[in-house]
Simulated scan of single mutants.
Amino acid sequence: MKDILITNEGDLKIENGDFVVDNSTLQHQALMLVANPGEFKESPSMGVGIENYILDSDMSGCEFEAQMQFSIDGMKVKNLNFKNDIIIEADYI
Score class of each variant (00 low, 15 high):
residue 45 S to Y: 15
residue 88 I to F: 01
residue 88 I to Q: 05
residue 53 Y to P: 02
residue 35 A to V: 01
residue 88 I to G: 01
residue 78 K to S: 05
residue 10 G to I: 08
residue 44 P to E: 07
residue 92 Y to M: 15
residue 42 E to H: 09
residue 92 Y to P: 07
residue 15 E to K: 04
residue 55 L to I: 13
residue 66 A to W: 01
residue 89 E to F: 03
residue 87 I to G: 03
residue 88 I to L: 06
residue 39 E to C: 15
residue 22 D to F: 08
residue 40 F to W: 11
residue 23 N to M: 04
residue 81 N to P: 02
residue 65 E to C: 02
residue 49 G to C: 03
residue 49 G to Q: 04
residue 59 M to S: 11
residue 58 D to Y: 09
residue 40 F to I: 14
residue 68 M to F: 02
residue 6 I to H: 04
residue 81 N to D: 10
residue 25 T to V: 15
residue 23 N to H: 02
residue 17 G to I: 13
residue 62 C to F: 14
residue 62 C to D: 03
residue 70 F to A: 05
residue 23 N to S: 04
residue 52 N to D: 10
residue 60 S to M: 04
residue 89 E to N: 02
residue 51 E to S: 13
residue 43 S to V: 13
residue 29 Q to A: 12
residue 24 S to K: 01
residue 90 A to N: 01
residue 2 K to M: 09
residue 70 F to K: 08
residue 60 S to I: 11
residue 26 L to Q: 11
residue 58 D to W: 00
residue 64 F to A: 15
residue 22 D to T: 06
residue 49 G to M: 02
residue 48 V to P: 00
residue 17 G to P: 05
residue 80 L to D: 03
residue 25 T to P: 05
residue 82 F to M: 06
residue 40 F to T: 15
residue 50 I to T: 08
residue 27 Q to N: 01
residue 46 M to H: 08
residue 77 V to E: 09
residue 79 N to S: 02
residue 22 D to G: 07
residue 23 N to R: 06
residue 7 T to E: 01
residue 5 L to D: 14
residue 11 D to L: 15
residue 23 N to F: 06
residue 80 L to C: 03
residue 31 L to M: 11
residue 91 D to F: 07
residue 56 D to G: 00
residue 21 V to Q: 14
residue 71 S to A: 05
residue 67 Q to F: 13
residue 7 T to C: 04
residue 46 M to G: 00
residue 18 D to L: 07
residue 33 L to A: 06
residue 22 D to A: 04
residue 90 A to P: 09
residue 78 K to R: 12
residue 50 I to S: 05
residue 66 A to M: 01
residue 52 N to L: 08
residue 48 V to Y: 02
residue 27 Q to D: 14
residue 86 I to A: 06
residue 36 N to H: 11
residue 10 G to W: 08
residue 8 N to F: 07
residue 31 L to N: 10
residue 88 I to Y: 01
residue 45 S to W: 10
residue 53 Y to E: 02
residue 92 Y to Q: 12
residue 69 Q to R: 02
residue 38 G to N: 06
residue 38 G to F: 05
residue 54 I to Y: 15
residue 84 N to G: 08
residue 82 F to R: 00
residue 91 D to I: 07
residue 70 F to W: 01
residue 36 N to C: 06
residue 24 S to N: 10
residue 45 S to N: 09
residue 46 M to N: 11
residue 24 S to D: 07
residue 69 Q to D: 10
residue 57 S to G: 15
residue 17 G to R: 07
residue 71 S to F: 03
residue 51 E to N: 10
residue 18 D to P: 01
residue 51 E to A: 10
residue 56 D to K: 05
residue 82 F to E: 00
